[in-house]
Nucleic acid binder design. Structure first.
Length: 428
DNA sequence: TCTGGGGTCCTAGGACCC
DNA sequence: TCTGGGGTCCTAGGACCC
């Protein structure tokens, strides 16, 4: 294990508060301090809650149909998830953050680690507050900032910032009594300790982050692998997880969805799979890669009493490609081979793997290099058009135009920031 | 009626090779 | 009776994250 003592270096973890809810509120200031929730795809479960909703006790992941009464009773505003909007706001937040550190890792849609270097102790908290004010002013998104000598401690500090000092929204664990903080933190709240390990540790009588930190290495290694050991060392202030400021390309790309209504015939299923293949190909091109492995899966609804069927099949391409045409074609062949009549399908998806640098995308025996180059240029234009004028401005005919299988999004907010037709208008 | 969609890393065990 | 040992690759499964 390669770990280094962090000797005075500080890391900040910036986390957007209730990110999806905050995004919706930017354009609906009337919803500030009001209960708001955002739903998962197909309006299935609650995936984001405003503080008001959390306080009322509604759990993350609750199915919408079980919340109807709660929503009515408390006058909750409900939104379908609008990833186009969230992606765009996320981009603005990250651009703002980038000005505060030469090294930054975008960890998720709403989180980033910032390397603060050897910034003086006394200056850190002030700096954190400055980051917070700037992001809020420039993007309208409230954030919390946790500062610590390692990623895991920064994460823990962030949790603390959010819950113990929401007014300031900044907490520097380096300026606090670390032992006391770890003692007050349930071990299950430590980053890297999931429900499984949490339960195991509790059974062993380990309940706080401090108790976990002080366990013998040999026990941790034996029961929780090196991953658990790294977490413990990080809690001791020894840095084992570095800031990855260059995003490594994905090793696999999956595009899948549950359908809004079950699909019973082949044709719409083929359209859906073509759409997923096309979206996966877009993701692939965005990271300048090509794939030589395509997989397709489909499944009926496991929650229903109807006859069940699910299957997965894959195909290895002779040469890597990033062409939507080629990937759609291969995905369609896969689907033909696993499709069975007489089932009500609920979900399908496309997987790409064996991903390589796009430069290895070369012509096969029966196609010319010229053809490949032409197709690459074509898709680079299509990608630019779709980026500028909105997804699916240009798309392959095989993706279908009706899309009856499309997911349910009954409470969708407008695409305020990415569609000319849906930009908010201010009337004098 | 309704039940998300993406990812990562690590380990154990088997096959195979010399 | 004795029944190598070490290396690599692959896969399935389990844990975690947002």
């Amino acid at each position: 294990m390669s770990c280094i003592r962090s000797d005075g270096r500080a890391i900040a973890l910036v986390d957007c508060n209730n990110f999806y809810v905050s995004c919706e509120r930017i354009f609906r200031p009337d919803l500030a301090a009001r209960p708001v929730i955002v739903l998962s795809n197909n309006d299935g479960n609650v995936v984001a809650r405003s503080n008001e909703v959390k306080k009322l006790g509604l759990k993350f992941g609750a199915p919408l149909h079980e919340c109807r009464e709660f929503i009515r009773k408390h006058g909750v505003s409900v939104f379908s998830s609008n990833y186009t909007l969230y992606g765009d706001i996320s981009h603005r937040v990250m651009e703002t953050l980038a000005a505060f550190s030469p090294r930054m890792e975008i960890y998720s849609i709403d989180e980033a680690f910032l390397d603060l270097g050897r910034m003086e102790h006394a200056a850190r908290e002030t700096y954190g507050k400055k980051i917070r004010q700037t992001v809020e002013r420039w993007t309208g998104i409230p954030i919390s900032v946790g500062i610590g000598p390692t990623k895991t401690l920064a994460k823990l500090a962030n949790h603390r910032a959010k819950h113990n000092c929401p007014q300031e929204g900044v907490f520097d664990i380096g300026g606090a009594d670390i032992d006391a903080v770890l003692e007050q933190t349930p071990v299950k709240e430590v980053w890297g300790i999931g429900p499984r390990y949490g339960a195991l540790l509790n059974r062993m009588g380990v309940h706080t982050a401090r108790q976990f930190r002080d366990l013998p290495d040999s026990w941790i290694r034996a029961h929780m692998t090196v991953v658990g050991l790294r977490t413990a060392w990080e809690l001791r202030g020894i840095s084992c997880l570095s800031i990855e400021d260059v995003a490594s390309p994905r090793k696999g790309i999956v595009s899948s969805r549950s359908f809004g209504t079950p699909v019973e015939s082949f044709e719409p299923l083929r359209e859906a799979v073509a759409s997923y293949a096309s979206r996966a190909a877009e993701k692939l091109r965005r990271q300048h890669c090509a794939a030589s492995f395509v997989g397709v899966f489909l499944a009926t609804n496991p929650f229903s009493d109807e006859p069940q069927y699910s299957n997965f099949i894959s195909y290895r391409l002779p040469l890597p490609t990033s062409s939507s045409f080629a990937l759609i074609r291969h995905a369609a062949h896969c689907l033909e081979r696993i499709y069975r009549e007489g089932f009500r399908y609920k979900k399908a998806g496309v997987m790409l793997a064996e991903i390589v640098d796009g430069r290895f995308e070369s012509a096969g025996l029966f196609e010319s290099a010229h053809e490949i180059t032409r197709e690459k240029r074509l898709f680079s234009v299509i990608d630019r058009v779709n980026e500028r004028f909105g997804a699916r401005t240009v798309f392959c005919a095989s993706e279908g135009i009706g899309q009856a299988w499309h997911m349910r999004r009954a409470f969708l907010s407008p695409r305020y920031t990415t569609s000319w037709n849906e930009i908010p208008v201010v009337r004098a």
